[in-house]
Design a protein around this nucleic acid. Structure first.
Lengths: 327, 327
DNA sequence: CTCCTGCACTTAAACGTTTTCGTAAAAATA
DNA sequence: TATTTTTACGAAAACGTTTAAGTGCAGGAG
């Protein structure tokens, strides 16, 4: 079938081990032989079989990335892919590959995440959009495999996490709205299964309560999707008293909200101010321009990769990293 | 380190081969032993090492997916991830994994795509957003490895392709605009390195020429990004004579265009009609709602996976698949 | 001349599976 | 009972690579 180092060895009348060492640039092989071996290898179209190499090295040079589409956290998919793109380029620098696991459908039929990791011999795993009620968390925390959680604030001996400081982000956004003189500020929560959803809401609630302005009627349950923002917008539009402002816990919902308000003849920002969270590029191109709290996806992804290699290479302990958002 | 079938064999005082056969449900092992082996394996926390299994089987059960961010085809990233999401779920049904290759930076430092595939022993590869001027095309067409190209109309013995019928999509959109009575229709081209970009443009040009309406001044070079749509919008806004309509060759540029027109006080659709291509969900939530030619990303991705397994499993020849768009 | 050192290569085992073949005992057939 | 078939397991090789240990040999030091 395909040409192996044995084939090269046979043709050159040397041993496979010399070929291996020559190709890998080991120093107990002469420069002369190295050159010749490389040349013959090229000639014969040799391609190293990484499966074999990885088996003997007990190193897979592979990172597992888990993306959850099991629940309807629609938004998690689009942000997950923003992260993924950065991560791909970062791991390449370390000579690693990424194998992707998509988690969806009923849990029962799925193997545990640890099993998936062990089978593929991945050296570390990154979870994007891990859910609140996921029963596999403890197993992951105790499994010894280097893990980085994105958007979920948990850590352990072998688990780091990185996310934007969501509470600070909410504070930024709220201060902005308050500085405009708004008092009755509504809030659209994200998907219940996302931890950051609750963090964002709790901070909003705290700030409102601090100024005795909290009103449960102005809190709405969204799920991060355009659709949910739109539907909630329709509800808000028919309230007896409109809020002064609406804080949508992500941009997609803010955009859906804008649409609903437009359809109902509510002017932004004259009648109601709207602010989002994420800083999706598209927000700058819609009408009116979306005000938003910005989280830097590249920064998050780069740090995630940095942290996982910190653990893989230096055996570092898990730690938490909170990045600062901007408004 | 981790427990192997040898460990299980030793503890049960049988041979590794029996353990392997028991775990794999081969029929030359008694039901009784199967049960016991599985139980002990569970007890000991055995996880199969797929690297080893794949090495002996000479089957990697892995698909390579190439995503190009080398050029500035910004849009290709976002659509690539729409495909990826579907493909993940489809390959899982076949017990395959996906390893991701991101192609960016200077070509010279990169290994050839075939090399990457051979090294990882992938059984097939999918290319999303392969570029017009990529010098590796011939190598891929002749390499024997099952390949599916998405959004690039090339095929060979071992290469299939799937894309929406872009020419038909343009016709649909143009007919729609013509039915509204528009005559001077401008066109925003996509990124020059994307094949579908040219296909869309050529069809537009043909239709305009057929009715003697083609005017090169109404053709603009975009790159599929929001930004480029916006910049072109600013240019169009100051033209002596505004076009009746603008056909943007994707939705993102259409949205950028909308923004520019809004800023310049041009009303949509009163002054100028706009139509896009892709049917991104967000188009339904902006103001005004975006008219668009729709391509079904799921359908494309599902067919791509179907076609690649067709080649992998049955050794089928490469073929071309054009899917019908809707307006 | 002997001993040591370093060089350049070979030998052989190892990584964890799977699978072909062999074989003994049990079961079925005549 | 004698023969064939089936069943259930074991032995050993194989997948393609890496690497620790071993070997022969040249050159240098004493």
């Amino acid at each position: 079938m395909s040409v192996t180092i044995k084939d090269i060895a046979k043709r050159m009348e040397i041993t496979p081990s010399s070929v291996s060492k020559a190709l890998n640039g080991k120093d107990d092989v002469s420069a002369d032989l190295k050159r010749k071996v490389r040349q013959v290898a090229d000639e014969m179209g040799y391609k190293k079989n990484m499966l074999a190499a990885r088996l003997v090295n007990m190193k897979s040079n592979t990172l597992g990335v888990f993306i959850f589409s099991r629940t309807k956290i629609k938004n998690s998919e689009s942000t997950a892919y923003k992260y993924l793109n950065i991560m791909l380029n970062e791991v390449k620098k370390h000579g690693f590959d990424i194998v992707l696991f998509s988690i969806e459908g009923s849990m029962s039929v799925n193997k545990s995440y640890v099993d998936l990791c062990m089978e593929r011999q991945v050296e570390g795993a990154i979870f994007i959009g891990f859910e609140n009620n996921d029963p596999h968390l403890e197993e992951l925390q105790g499994c010894g495999l280097p893990i980085v959680m994105i958007e979920k604030n948990v850590s352990s001996e072998n688990m780091s996490c990185v996310m934007v400081d969501n509470a600070a982000g909410i504070s930024l956004g709220m201060n902005y709205l308050l500085s405009l003189g708004h008092q009755n500020i509504a809030f659209i929560k994200g998907h219940f299964a996302a931890e950051l959803s609750d963090i964002r809401y709790q901070q909003y609630k705290k700030l409102m309560e601090d100024s005795d302005r909290f009103n449960a009627d102005y809190v709405f349950d969204g799920d991060f999707s355009l659709e949910s923002g739109y539907n909630i917008g329709l509800k808000i539009a028919v309230m007896d008293k409109l809020p002064d402002a609406v804080f949508a816990s992500n941009d997609l919902m803010a955009i859906g909200l804008l649409r609903a308000f437009f359809e109902k003849g509510i002017s932004i920002p004259e009648d109601v101010s709207i602010i989002g969270f994420d800083n999706f590029e598209i927000g700058k191109f819609i009408k009116p321009k979306l005000t938003t709290v910005s989280q830097n996806f590249s920064e998050i992804a780069e740090n995630a990769i940095m942290m996982i290699f910190e653990m893989i290479n230096s055996g570092g302990k898990g730690r938490s990293l909170l990045l600062v958002p901007e408004v």
